[in-house]
Design a protein around this nucleic acid. Structure first.
Lengths: 329, 329
DNA sequence: GTGAAAGCGCTAACAT
DNA sequence: ATGTTAGCGCTTTCAC
């Protein structure tokens, strides 16, 4: 594998000149440039990015930390982030794991200069490595999930409004037998979606009893068993707002198992509008958040911070939109 | 951000000794080691991996190339690869894109010494960058999809057997009104699954007419419209083998739309056994391939090749297992 | 057991 | 417009 020194020797110029040609610097005579380019062409030379990174202090790699990919929302997000990152000629290093091991690894990678910055998508209140990264002022951005007072840019859906829209949809159809399923107050999305939903209901005089504000993790199976309990209760709630689509899928599965017809016997709203939500078998009414835009803006903000670390931190919230489908017409 | 030189100065030793301690070399006096370690602890020093990689010629990063993540099988595979890679203290750089842009980028990254090797999961017959990578003897491994005569290790499911198992399941239930949906002969998985299925049927005297061997891409929507056409045909096939689960989901969706009851009016078998396949709404009979094992072995083979580039190439095939569920009991 | 010195392959400052 | 030189932060001989 040839080095720029080899190219220089073959072209009869200094190694510096080769570097100049490679970087497209202006101060090279056209004739010299051509000579170098032709040698370059012949050898199929590719610059050693490691060595380059060592001087420029830019690796051209962006880290991405997500939760476990069991939620189909994450693949779509990763896809969008991948597009935003590779579209800029950069690379994406991915950590997709439970717990905070991904955050820990990402922080190490930043400090070890293996990535220029990190996009965190699964921020949780009590994550020590994330807190440490932000405290150390390492270049990071939070998308999808936010953290109050985090020292970095944040891009999310306006989850409070999203929850309120779900509430309004139920109210407009005269439903008052509502419940919220899924949630963890350490996670901004579910906390805010829940709060927006409950607050809007309260404004209209509907108070949701605490036993119908159901904590479950974000998995299909937990949601399913929670809904199963709800459905076996005779006078229980039948207008269910789920904090995300996977939770909603679990609820739909429980409904099928229990012989609860959707939307006749119960109505369901999700959040995220993953691709599957529009499949006939689910046909899920849900709130959509613009994944591509969130990913794109997140990457853009991260890169702009690398250039200007002093820019004040921003929190951009995209408006969610209610997609009305068969599960809650 | 301190360097090993800073640590050396603070500890009153040479930079070399710091390096020795960091790498756990034996020839350091215990007393010296402790001194260095205590300074290390105090500063929160993290070695610059770039510089390290430049000397060792190992980056500690593995590239992964997948197709677009619209197929839920890929997230599960990425998850498994991530576990196999990060579990070894390495990092994963991911390219998930249509076409061969990911392969091209991965090849560049290998040549630019940004990754030690690459796991290709979406090999297609006519991919120039992949062909080039293999020709150049760059360290790579093919998993899930194979390529005849590729100069690298390959780990796949035994797709021929998988297809045969599906055929046997239909035959055992007396079904002869079969069709195969989804396929592209440039992709080993669908080519082999199809061939295994058709060959086994032929052995039992069942010849599938060519119009019931349906080429569609691997998307839910294409499969859905193909199945829609099939279901509107009166005497058409009603025992459908799909080359993967997403295709099967599309078929199930079409069935629902057309009022075709599963499994009463039609039976469906998929391939992959993605998590969703066991959800009540799908309840899909399918062939499972051991994703974790494939990922684990793929990474292991790749790493072992880095240590011994001369080892002969192997193709390991895992046996698929039929998971019988409601869609084809 | 420890340190000095060389060098991985680049880029950038400085000379000419 | 081009070349010389000095590192980036490590690991690895090679001396002692």
């Amino acid at each position: 594998m040839p080095t720029s020194k080899d190219i220089a020797r073959l072209a009869g110029v200094s190694q510096t000149t080769v570097s100049r040609v490679l970087l497209g610097k202006p101060n090279v005579r056209e004739e010299t440039r051509q000579k170098v380019l032709s040698v370059l062409d012949g050898t199929g030379y590719v610059a050693n990015e490691q060595a380059r990174a060592m001087r420029t202090r830019r690796t051209g790699t962006i880290g991405v930390v997500t939760g476990r990919i069991t939620n189909p929302f994450y693949p779509e997000l990763i896809d969008a982030l991948g597009t935003a990152i590779t579209g800029r000629g950069l690379r994406m290093t991915l950590w997709a794991s439970d717990a905070d091991s991904g955050e820990r690894a990402a922080m190490e990678a930043m400090r070890g200069r293996l990535v220029d910055g990190v996009v965190f998508t699964a921020a949780t209140k009590g994550s020590p490595p994330l807190a440490a990264a932000l405290r150390a002022n390492l270049p990071a951005v939070l998308i999808i999930r936010s953290l109050d007072g985090a020292r970095c840019d944040q891009i999310t859906s306006d989850n409070l409004t999203g929850g309120a829209l779900a509430a309004e949809h139920f109210l407009a159809r005269g439903r008052r037998d509502v419940a919220v399923i899924g949630g963890d107050d350490g996670v901004s999305t579910s906390r805010e979606r829940r709060a927006g939903f409950l607050d809007r209901l309260r404004e209209e005089g509907v108070e949701v009893p605490p036993e119908y504000v159901i904590d479950t993790d974000f998995s299909h199976d937990s949601a399913k068993s929670a809904a199963r309990a709800l459905f076996s209760e005779a006078g229980g709630p039948r207008a269910l707002f789920c904090v995300n689509d996977v939770v909603a899928f679990g609820v739909l599965d429980a409904a099928r198992e229990r012989g609860v017809a959707i939307p006749r016997d119960a109505v369901v709203i999700g959040y995220d509008d993953v691709k599957m939500a529009s499949w006939d078998l689910f046909d899920l009414t849900t709130l959509s958040q613009p994944v591509e835009q969130i990913a794109e803006l997140g990457v853009a903000k991260l890169l702009s911070r690398l250039d200007d670390p002093t820019r004040p931190f921003e929190h951009h919230r995209f408006q969610p939109e209610l997609r009305i489908r068969g599960s809650a017409p």
